[in-house]
Design a protein around this nucleic acid. Structure first.
Length: 608
RNA sequence: GCGACUGUAGCUCAGAUGGUUAGAGUACCGGCCUGUCACGCCGGGGGUCGCGGGUUCGAGCCCCGUCAGUCGCGCCA
């Protein structure tokens, strides 16, 4: 009658329509409720939960009594309709239950280090060491499924748009990206190392040069840099894209609908920016204090230097006499109380600034009046001019930061977010996208004055060779762009430099001659010599997108088996010290104080 | 590399100002309970208070060092 070895249905399948049928289910014991004469077991599998039960009428009643959490069991039984008063609306199978006639324990479980039932927070160390238990928990389980669905959706969408997925090598050569490489020693070439790709940057360009026209890959990337909450150590994934005979516009018009569609599909109904605004890097820094602005925050900074120049507020007035200095205002509608202003001022102090001046507007005898020490110093006319410029009114405030923009912009950006957060001006039900464009090609080292590439040196400068040969290199912009959503940088991309003469010139500006370029980037240089099409691309981070969709702030919450903050795998115990035989094969010897530096990774062997 | 916060039972946490035998919930073990769905009730076992040193008559608590975790800065697109 019951044919399959383990199950006829999943723990999500059974409904009132199955009442009276004999079924077979397998799964984990999620939770047991023992009432003496009747035993309830929540049986869980990947799909859902079904309540199974036994009483002394069941031949296996005593076996069911001995079950513990996370045992894996198979039960045979009959589906019974629940009395309407006993229906559990929280689970899909809540209208029925299964009366156990036979049961088999497929696998026992010891006392759990990490309960699967319930969703309280547990220390990451435990969660990572017992990741397989953590992954059984509903929410993480669902997020990993979300990630998988996102990737699948992207694949279909990209293929439908005429892109082809290719796999690029994992063992490769060091690339010109800026991060530290993971190195893999070569056995055949002792003393030489492969690098794991920081991104398939060179390969995707070579694929274009090879004539494949439109490439994408859900590609693993490896970077040996210290992590952050939104930056995994070790490996992460990108939607890597490259297009031939394409300019910046083509990339934008191709990727925008993909991202919009993705966030509409999986964003749980949150609204998605219809047309992604484009903000020049310079404007982003000016108005938002960052190149990854959160546009859910409506506040924009403005220059108010003219109102402070020559004013009675000496600190700003004398500041403004120096070259390159200005004063910017952050408007704070609704922040017009001394209490709030003082709180923000001390926020700025905690961020390492001497403070943040402010004006707030209140009513006095029916008239609007600017208050606070700054207003007193600059007088009512200038105060009123500022109010008009910022379009503020009664009950509003504005904060002021002065100096060289580079020195205060970052803090100003954080203050902008802090102010909007405190005043509840951020719409959390939105995905606000924007493109950041026109990044400068070069930057000047503040101390030495030396020029260097500010981003990827292989990007095409706007204006091409002519722009590089005439005028100030610091004024040259690149066809480089970022895509940002809710203050999270999803990706950067660029129109690539496919012209050798332009590439040589760009490197010359930062002090490297032809020989240097030929030696360091021989693969790319060679490829550019034999007919490279104009091409451009982008590479949004998969985890970053899933994080946003899942409303998480930590990348490990959307990763199956993440490394910890010290790039250790606590579950399987990586990295490990190789055997002496392996080292000999590779021609390697570990030098220095090995004992203190190759501390075994805790976890795998259970020591602590 | 640097900074902030954290480290007490298998797990989550509480332990003012230093003071007798370090507590609770949960999990685990035993008992009771036929309608629960975070079931309930009774009982029990379980601790090198991260580690080392110091101050003190006395340290989970104070001091120094060290290890580990998270978050941030540097770094990183």
């Amino acid at each position: 009658m019951v044919s399959h070895l383990y199950r006829t249905h999943t723990c999500y399948d059974l409904t009132r329509d199955h009442a009276g049928q004999t079924v077979r289910l397998s799964g984990w014991v999620h939770r047991i409720r023992d009432h003496g004469g009747v035993l309830f077991v929540d049986l869980r599998d990947h799909y859902g939960i079904t309540q199974v039960l036994a009483d002394p009428d069941s031949a296996v009643f005593s076996d069911v009594e001995n079950l513990r959490a996370e045992f894996v069991i198979r039960v045979d039984g009959e589906v019974r309709l629940r009395d309407p008063s006993l229906v559990n609306s929280k689970i899909a199978t809540g209208e029925i239950e299964v009366f156990i006639r036979d049961m088999e324990v497929l696998s026992r479980a010891e006392e759990l280090p990490l309960p699967v039932f319930g969703e309280p927070d547990y220390p990451e160390e435990i969660r990572l060491k017992y990741r397989f238990l953590d992954l059984r928990r509903t929410r993480l389980h669902q997020r990993i499924m979300l990630r998988s669905k996102v990737i699948s959706w992207i694949r279909h969408r990209m293929e439908a748009r005429g892109f082809t997925e290719f796999q690029t090598p994992i063992l490769t050569a060091s690339s010109p990206e800026g991060a530290r490489d993971y190195l893999v020693p070569s056995r055949i070439h002792q003393g030489k190392f492969y690098a794991l790709p920081q991104a398939p940057q060179q390969f995707k360009q070579l694929i274009m040069i090879a004539g494949f026209d439109r490439y994408f890959q859900i590609s693993p990337c490896f970077r040996d840099e210290d992590p952050r909450a939104d930056r995994a150590p070790g490996d992460f994934y990108q939607l890597d894209v490259e297009m031939s005979f394409a300019n910046q516009e083509d990339v934008f018009s191709t990727i925008e609908p993909v991202l919009r569609g993705l966030f509409e599909e999986f964003g749980g109904g949150r609204t998605v920016t219809r047309n992604f605004p484009r903000i020049a890097y310079r404007d982003a820094m000016h108005e938002y204090g960052t190149d990854k602005p959160d546009l859910r925050n409506p506040l924009r900074m403005e220059s108010v230097s003219e109102h402070f120049a020559g004013s009675g507020f000496r600190i700003f007035a004398s500041l403004l006499e120096r070259k390159g200095c200005e004063v910017r205002a952050i408007p704070a509608p609704g922040g017009g109380s001394r209490r709030f202003c003082d709180r923000m001022n001390s926020f700025a102090q905690r961020q390492g600034l001497p403070g943040m001046g402010y004006i707030f507007w209140r009513s006095r005898a029916g008239e609007i009046e600017g208050a606070g020490p700054l207003a007193k110093n600059i007088g009512p006319e200038r105060t009123e001019a500022i109010r008009r410029q910022l379009n503020l009114g009664m009950g509003d405030a504005a904060f002021f930061l002065g100096g060289r923009p580079r020195a205060f912009e970052a803090v100003a950006g954080r203050a902008r977010d802090e102010i909007a957060g405190q005043l509840d001006l951020i719409d959390h039900d939105r995905f606000s996208f924007c493109w950041i464009t026109d990044f400068p090609m070069f930057e000047e080292d503040e101390e030495s004055g030396a020029l260097d590439f500010s981003h990827n040196p292989f990007s095409m400068p706007q204006g091409g060779l002519e722009a590089l040969e005439t005028g100030d290199p610091l004024d040259v912009l690149g066809y480089q762009y970022d895509i940002v959503c809710n203050g999270v940088e999803l990706s950067s991309g660029a129109v690539r430099n496919h012209r050798l003469d332009v590439l040589y010139k760009a490197f010359e500006i930062v002090g490297h001659d032809r020989k240097f370029v030929d030696e360091h980037f021989s693969g790319m240089v060679n490829a550019l010599r034999f007919g490279a099409p104009p091409h451009a691309g982008i590479a949004p981070g998969i985890e970053r997108m899933v994080m946003l969709l899942a409303n998480m702030e930590n990348i490990r919450e959307v990763t199956l088996f993440p490394l910890n903050q010290r790039a250790e795998d606590l579950m399987l115990g990586a990295p490990t010290r190789p055997t002496n035989e392996a080292l000999r094969d590779l021609g390697l010897r570990i030098v220095g104080d090995v004992e203190s530096r190759t501390r075994p990774v805790r976890g795998a062997t259970g020591q602590r």
